[in-house]
Nucleic acid binder design. Structure first.
Lengths: 339, 339
DNA sequence: CTGAAAGCGCTTACAG
DNA sequence: CTGAAAGCGCTTACAG
């Protein structure tokens, strides 16, 4: 690679015949220079093709224009969150460094530390743990929790109303006459799982239906695409061999849903004629399947946007906000009434 | 937020009773200290919870442990690339800042400049333009092209063999007796589109089939998920109204494919009985559709990995590599023989 | 409205 | 094997 040195503030100052203080001032729109000076400086910047060394700025002011996003993996849901974060970050001239924790607490802590060592403006975290142990020395970097809550931290949260979303799905199935409803849940260690389970149970109780543990399945640990798809698959395979199998199934995330449908196909159980089905997370392909799937849809992009806004409030005014976004049931054609 | 100051090299040096030079040396594994000193320093680091200020390091050495990834949008293909990049970056202790160009050349240049101002180790770029204009001042930051080539730059490239992949799909349809094969292409401005078109034409010529411009469609500009899905949709709608409609369709990316299938469903044309179909990019859901889709599969994760390796070779040895990965036809059940 | 100077926290010749 | 010192490129009181 070439190695011509970048022009610095000094070069600009020299060219514009001012001090570096002045150059810095116009660079930061401090409005402390005459228009004539400003013009002269800008012209020098243009001519030299100067751009500010961000590391030097960060070192001096103690915070970079970087925000960290830590997600368990790169699944489509988190990718949509990233899109929302990107949108919102443009307003702040922030850039985002994305890291995966791979569902490992150790890795998550490492990554938090690395980001902190970069003086990021903040971290948006979808935590792998339901308790967050943030070492004291990292308390300085503002963290906003996204999607998943943690118990022991007084941090801003942006999350979906999982209880209600799950309630809605379950209730809809009940209102269609289903009384044995199987639910496939993700890893029991995270808040979203607990809440989706809660909504399911609330709906059953509300309609006087006995909660049957045998109808509740966990799709195994949350570790990668294939594992989860397989988790959904196995859950259905077990479910349909029950003495009293369910007439409807609710899969509480996108990958579990794919696995579940796969199993139903193999078992040759037709949706919705022989079994009703509701999935999770909307994706374009769900419109083109046979049948098109009904799902609980999450406003993932909006969650990303809100997270950055929450971060900003946290940083600037030290306000800890909790943002709860609504989940929507999109009805297509994967469940039917059996009354 | 709290504001307790972070411990610095000085604090560590003081605690360990050595100079900061020595601390820096053990931090960088320079192996210039006695074991006793090393232990003492490490103990001090542990006790203080010290972690190095990366901005200061970057300012001094001129390059950060950051690599930039610039993609047109956050679609699943690029997300898989990100996964590969993440995997490989862990070996180098690099982190990755992800930025989207939103298919805008202006934005792409801005982003390159911002990353450069951060002293990134390198940039992995899926360029929006087929010609890359990189201002002179940015020549210092090593760029590796991914997926999409550009004409006028002598940069490392990691790409798929699009010509061959497209040839394979087309040939397979021909061998199944199809002679009127519709192709749906993405934006004409990018190399992948040109190459996929080229493979299609080569296959037709090889089998003595006339190339009919009326069977070649562009899914509109490459601008966002909905636009592209709609592009695929429109293409099929026009195609099937042709006096001599195709008996097979090849959609050359994932979103175009979804739109195309949507249109075929609406038109009530059954795949594969009434029309044969091959799509692009493998995703788990494609196994659970009716029928399961045959597609050309891209090794996206591997592309990400290779890009980082290419970057490394470029930086360390100044070697400009071109890595071409093979595309695979995965046959499920979406085309049939009409001979 | 403008400038001289200190200092952010590191790394790296250089000297011993 | 270890340390004193310069300097990376900025920002920011402070003085005028």
């Amino acid at each position: 690679m070439e190695n011509k040195k970048n022009p610095t503030l000094y070069d600009v100052a020299q060219k514009a015949n001012v001090s570096i203080t002045t150059v810095s001032n116009v660079l930061n729109n401090k409005n402390e220079a005459s228009q004539k000076t400003i013009d002269r400086v800008n012209e020098a910047i243009r001519q030299l093709g100067y751009s500010r060394n961000e590391s030097a700025r960060t070192l001096k002011v103690g915070t970079s224009k970087l925000v960290g996003l830590i997600v368990p993996d790169n699944n489509p849901f988190f990718t949509q969150i990233l899109t929302g974060i990107h949108e919102e970050c443009q307003n702040h001239d922030w850039q985002v460094v994305v890291a995966t924790s791979e569902e490992s607490e150790k890795r998550q802590n490492e990554v938090i530390e690395m980001l902190s060592a970069r003086q990021v403006s903040g971290i948006i975290l979808a935590s792998v743990t339901s308790k967050l142990y943030v070492p004291e020395k990292l308390q300085k970097v503002p963290i906003v929790l996204i999607d998943r809550e943690v118990e022991n931290a007084n941090l801003p949260v942006v999350k979906a109303n999982n209880v209600e979303g799950s309630y809605k799905a379950t209730e809809t199935l009940i209102q269609n006459g289903h009384r044995r409803i199987g639910i496939i849940l993700a890893s029991p260690g995270i808040s979203t799982t607990l809440q989706r389970k809660e909504g399911y149970i609330q709906a059953l109780k509300r309609y006087g239906i006995e909660v049957d543990e045998k109808l509740m399945f966990y799709g195994g640990d949350y570790t990668g695409t294939k594992t989860q798809i397989n988790g959904g698959y196995q859950a259905v395979m077990k479910m349909i061999q029950l003495p009293e199998p369910p007439t409807a199934i609710f899969a509480t995330n996108h990958l579990l849903m794919i696995g579940a449908v796969k199993a139903l196909k193999e078992a040759n159980l037709k949706i919705p004629d022989e079994i009703s089905f509701i999935g999770f997370d909307d994706h374009p392909w769900q419109e083109i399947t046979d049948p098109p799937f009904s799902i609980i849809s999450q406003p993932a992009v909006e969650m990303g946007r809100q997270a950055i806004q929450a971060l900003q409030k946290f940083k600037e005014k030290n306000i800890v906000t909790t943002t709860v976004l609504q989940l929507e049931l999109i009805t297509r054609n994967s469940y039917r009434s059996i009354t």
